[in-house]
């Protein structure tokens, strides 16, 4: 929850007091936050790697993953990074209409991904993999669930951004706000690049 607080903070321009490095406070804060998030996801991924083979009951990872399905949803998330970067680029050109359009498409692609994840979780649950079934189950749902929550937070931020942009209520530098939320969105995407390979494609 700290993330959107940072993303939405528009720093302080103390009159003419420019920053020592010439860089934006907000952007520096955002990059630091993402660096810190690496250790969060690192911990969850390591926990999964340690536990993926430990199945005392319920299905094994290799038997349950639906690679074609997950490949499609991974592709969708990857393409949402493209639409996000197009939104940032439109915002830098001060093209409000296209900014809103691309932000909306990004949010929709993100929502498709989350929808796919909900479908996947339900399917797995029906096949007997609950959160408490085995260590594999607990660590798999914890990792992908955390990622899903991050995507969902991103969607909320994108939609809020569209709404605020329409009413012209974004305080501060609009292009920078779009860029910051873009950074967060791409980060969520690159984490999925890792999860897709390490969790889904490489069998235990």
């Amino acid at each position: 929850m700290a993330e959107s607080a940072i993303a939405h903070d528009h720093g302080v321009s103390h009159g003419a007091h420019a920053s020592s490095t010439g860089l934006s406070n907000n952007k520096m804060g955002m990059w630091m936050f993402l660096g810190s998030e690496c250790l969060l996801f690192g911990g969850l991924i390591s926990t999964y790697m340690l536990y993926r083979g430990r199945v005392s009951s319920g299905p094994q990872p290799n038997n349950i993953f639906d690679i074609p399905f997950t490949s499609v949803s991974s592709f969708i998330l990857l393409m949402s990074s493209l639409t996000m970067v197009l939104a940032v680029s439109s915002a830098q050109r001060k093209d409000d209409r296209n900014t809103n359009l691309w932000l909306t498409i990004t949010a929709l692609l993100g929502a498709t991904f989350v929808g796919g994840q909900v479908y996947e979780f339900t399917a797995f649950y029906r096949e007997g993999l609950g959160f408490t079934t085995s260590l594999f189950g607990s660590s798999f749902y914890a990792l992908t669930g955390f990622h899903g929550v991050h995507v969902s937070v991103g969607i909320i931020m994108l939609m809020a951004l569209v709404g605020m942009n329409r009413n012209n209520r974004i305080p501060g530098d609009k292009a920078e706000v779009v860029e910051l939320i873009g950074l967060y969105w791409h980060f969520v995407d690159i984490i999925w690049i890792i999860i897709f390979t390490l969790v889904y494609l490489i069998p235990s």
């Binding site: 860089l23 990059w31 630091m32 993402l34 660096g35 493209l82 873009g182 791409h186 690159i190």
Partner: peptide, 25 residues
């Protein structure tokens, strides 16, 4: 994605240091 979509390749090196410090750590 990090270099192009997130502009890290074109941005100030400090951003790269901050992010890759966390990643490599």
């Amino acid at each position: 994605v990090v270099s192009y979509f997130m502009h890290l390749k074109f941005d100030n090196k400090i951003f790269s240091y901050l992010f890759y410090a966390g990643l490599l750590l």
